[in-house]
Design a protein around this nucleic acid. Sequence first.
DNA 1: ACGCAGGCTAAGCGCTCGCTCAGGCGGCGA
DNA 2: TCGCCGCCTGAGCGAGCGCTTAGCCTGCGT
Lengths: 208, 208
Amino acid sequence: MSTAKETAGGEMPPWAEVTPDAARRLLVAAVEAFAERGYHATTTRDIAGRAGMSPAALYIHFKTKEELLHRISRIGHERALDVLRTAARGEGNATERLADAVSSFVRWHAGARTTARVVQYELDSLGPAARAEIIALRRQVDAEVRGIIEDGVASGEFDVPDVRGTTLAVLSLCIDVARWFNVNGTRTPDEVGALYADLVLRMVGASK
Amino acid sequence: MSTAKETAGGEMPPWAEVTPDAARRLLVAAVEAFAERGYHATTTRDIAGRAGMSPAALYIHFKTKEELLHRISRIGHERALDVLRTAARGEGNATERLADAVSSFVRWHAGARTTARVVQYELDSLGPAARAEIIALRRQVDAEVRGIIEDGVASGEFDVPDVRGTTLAVLSLCIDVARWFNVNGTRTPDEVGALYADLVLRMVGASK
DNA sequence: ACGCAGGCTAAGCGCTCGCTCAGGCGGCGA
DNA sequence: TCGCCGCCTGAGCGAGCGCTTAGCCTGCGT
């Protein structure tokens, strides 16, 4: 049911794929620091300090500070795309799949908010090559949502005059969750996911 | 009709209230630089350079780099709030006022995108005192939208189970326009405003 | 005619940044 | 037993940062 679990302290994306252990600790420290203060305001000394290491240790595992952001961004986008695809390509009609996709995607942005903030808002601190790679992943996210909406229009479930514009708005709504979530602590990721799924079904004119 | 006009090169908020002329040129240069690269990645030398001055000139008109961001943020928020209020407190029923408020607010975020980006995304580069002042302005924005939705529920025009959550989502949708607008250049601010007004009316269950 | 105040610049201070380098420590294969 | 290799540190380099200071123009009141 819930693909993401979270405890008070942190989130749980499978940074497991990052090895060795010290590199993973540095990367997790970087995610926290970037999310709190932004990429440019974060120092390599701060990242290394959070991981309990000296500043020089960072450069054994990563060539530059930007490589850290690049790896975080790529893994984060892949994770988000994976969450979205699982829901979008599941069983059910377009209405059910759209509700599932939105609530999963929102749950990820709320539950893994720290990662999501870095993924969504530090994009243009990357160099041109890395940014282009990430933008390609984003287009896949867009295509996934647009596909469901097109299915719903074709089957007559949805009433959507502007498919591209509506797709944009739906994604925009989900992504912005990373900006405001948890500022006050009311509402769980599940609750926000359910609310947003309902709002999005209304936006596409689903009969409910 | 259109409260904001824009030309190819720039936007038009009334930075007129900033004097003397040199201070205004510096402030406009800072808006552009902050929007392009972010507050922390922008140097005082860059700002002064864009305004055609030496780095030292900045400190005749502003005590610190942060004071620049503070003034931009305050004026920008006041302007956005003003745009929203004009629509929200106009004539008409809740449906008309909500459509008007959303399309005006979105038009501002799209048309004055450079300013809006700084206003919406550089908030926590401010110190605690300045940030608190800005957050108070944001609460007024929230109250304005919530007021319309409550009116619509009371009059039976809207069907909204979760007023606070829906208000949050509506504002979130509008604000995020500043993040993605103009990346490709299709769609004018007016078109996005109209599209979003329609989508929001669907979200609140207005009969249209 | 002249002083002076506001607007500006060239130079640079003290600091911290991203990143490097020489070397130390510890575990593991031979 | 010992040499090697992966991981890590202390010290520090060159650069660029935000911001200051001393002093120079220019226009305006008198």
